[in-house]
């Protein structure tokens, strides 16, 4: 097993999630990661793939993603048809991690192809070619979704959910988040502290005034702008306030929090 090298993406663990991931991989269990947007789900998977030395096949799921997009399809070439593997099939053939980001966004029929892969059969039947692929030991299925902003008409079926080991992510603690900001962007600890304090204030507004709260990713954006020499108050307004709300009065209040932290 490889250890963290310079090519491994930066990840600051907040608990034993790395351990759980490794154990799930070793024991061939599929993993479900839930958490708010921008809290590091994708980064975590990328980090673990690098750490375990596995190829990572990421699929960002969207409304129109069909089973064929995952499994593969026949393409029509010059006088012939060519079978083209989809990312899921490629991952099963080669071994490695197949990561389906925001899996609830995908069409319902896609979950059906995941079912035989996600239980102890670990098989991927391909109807079109009549193949039945057996996943190698190095294959791991990881899916993620954000329970917060699920579309009203979408949700994860219990039959799909119950095939996964689940891991809940939340925003890191203040000290960890400061470490992340400094590790990612190289800003000084004072600025990191202030940014995290702003995020804390915004997160208190969850369920009341904001539908989605400041993610670690947005903080990294703000920190990057500040590191680049941009005025901190303006940077926070651009990266946090305006991104989080369209409502003018809410924006005023959020800007006040920013200037209460950075001064003017």
């Amino acid at each position: 097993m490889e250890t963290q090298t310079s090519s491994t993406p930066f990840y600051e663990p907040s608990g034993d999630e790395c351990d759980l991931f490794e154990r799930a991989w070793k024991n061939r269990l599929p993993l479900l990661i839930k958490g708010p947007t921008g809290c590091g789900k994708t980064r975590f998977v990328a980090h673990m793939a690098a750490r375990l030395g596995l190829p990572l096949h990421t699929v960002a799921c969207h409304d129109d993603l069909t089973a064929a997009d995952l499994v593969g399809r026949h393409l029509i070439g010059d006088g012939e048809t060519i079978w083209n593997d989809g990312p899921l099939t490629r991952a099963v053939r080669e071994g490695g991690i197949c990561y389906l980001d925001e899996v609830v966004e995908a069409r319902k029929d896609t979950t059906v192809v995941l079912h035989p892969l996600a239980d102890d059969r670990r098989m991927l039947p391909i109807d079109r070619t009549g193949e039945l692929l057996q996943a190698p030991p190095a294959f791991m299925l990881v899916v993620s979704y954000n329970p917060g902003y699920q579309n009203f008409l979408k949700g994860m079926k219990p039959s799909t959910r119950q095939r996964f080991v689940s891991l809940t992510f939340d925003f890191p603690s203040a000290t960890q988040e400061e470490a992340i900001l400094m590790g990612e962007t190289g800003i000084d600890s004072m600025t990191a502290k202030r940014l995290v304090s702003i995020a804390g204030a915004f997160r208190a507004l969850r369920d009341h005034d904001l539908e989605e709260v400041a993610s670690t990713r947005l903080l990294v954006y703000a920190a990057t702008l500040i590191k680049d020499g941009y005025d901190p108050v303006r940077a926070c307004q651009a990266a946090l306030v305006e991104t989080l709300t369209d409502d003018a009065e809410t924006a005023v209040a959020l800007s006040e929090v920013v200037s209460a932290t950075f001064g003017r």
Binding site: A204, H208, D209, E249, T250, A253, E256, V257
Partner: peptide, 13 residues
């Protein structure tokens, strides 16, 4: 400014 003030109050804990 009532609405902004209220949100500010909640944001500050």
């Amino acid at each position: 400014i009532a609405k902004s003030v209220a949100i500010f109050f909640r944001a500050l804990g």
